[in-house]
């Protein structure tokens, strides 16, 4: 319940302030007070910026290290690793990230591919603790590695790699970025709300890119933009990319 006495007091005090004849300008135009207002406004502005640019992204995304590290740079050295063939990076990529005979793309190789070389859990080929973990945790138990896929699209999307890489002559790195010299796999960053990888929406939380690269984002607009730019506008029909 309101206290009638207090509330009347309060209102009377307030009323007294407003009617005080201390100057020509009304009190609210007092420069000090405006300065104070601006100060607080800027304070709010800064606070909001911190929330929006720092806290929000931190809360929005969760970061996951891959189950084990994979050293692309090491494995792409055709002198060290058997079966890495080709001159260009794309050709080298395709040594492990293969197209099957039916034209479908195998994506991340299965354990089977790894065990072509890492066949004996007892004798690792290198000395890293990562490889040891890989041997004991996966090779020994014949268990597939639960990789996080950076560029995983939702189920309704149909993306034929062969149409882009082979028929369209688009380099792997155009969309995936260059992994060839990576010694360490980047963290997998997942949007808590949507469940998608950050690589889909783009790494820049602002969403703005001055120098648009296709590897930046992988949303529907980006597919359509590229189709249009490459003169494949007819490929923007729904059933070209959706299933």
């Amino acid at each position: 319940m309101k206290d009638p006495v207090n509330s009347s007091k309060k209102s009377s005090a307030k009323g007294g302030d407003v009617s005080s004849p201390s100057g020509f300008f009304p009190r609210w135009m007092n420069i000090n007070i405006i300065a104070q207002d601006v100060g607080f406004f800027i304070l709010g502005l800064i606070g909001a910026s911190i929330v929006g640019w720092v806290i929000f992204p931190a809360v929005l995304y969760s970061k996951h290290p891959q189950p084990i590290n994979f050293n692309h740079a090491l494995h792409l050295d055709s002198e060290k690793v058997d079966g890495i063939e080709g001159e260009t990076k794309a050709e080298k990529c395709l040594s492990c990230h293969v197209f099957r005979d039916d034209g479908t793309f195998a994506g991340i190789p299965k354990l089977e591919k790894c065990t072509e070389c890492h066949d004996d859990p007892e004798s690792p080929l290198g000395e890293t603790p990562q490889e040891k973990a890989f041997m004991t945790k996966y090779v020994a138990d014949d268990k597939e590695i639960p990789w996080f896929v950076y560029s995983k699209q939702p189920d309704c999307v149909y993306f034929p790699h062969i149409a882009h890489v082979k028929m369209g002559n688009i380099d792997c790195t155009t969309c995936h970025g260059d992994f060839a010299d990576n010694e360490k796999l980047p963290l997998y960053v997942k949007n808590r709300l949507t469940g998608y990888s950050m690589n889909i929406w783009g790494e820049r939380i602002s969403g703005f890119y001055w120098n648009k690269k296709f590897s930046d984002r992988m949303k529907m607009d980006d597919c359509a933009r590229c189709h249009t730019e490459k003169g494949q506008e007819q490929n923007n029909a729904c059933f070209v990319c959706h299933k």
Binding site: F40, G44, A48, P57
Partner: peptide, 20 residues
């Protein structure tokens, strides 16, 4: 109120509302 207005104005210039 000034701080809130500042906050509301400021948040517009961050990705939060748009991305959210």
């Amino acid at each position: 109120i000034a701080a809130v207005i500042g906050g509301v104005a400021g948040i517009q210039a961050t990705p939060l509302p748009w991305k959210l």
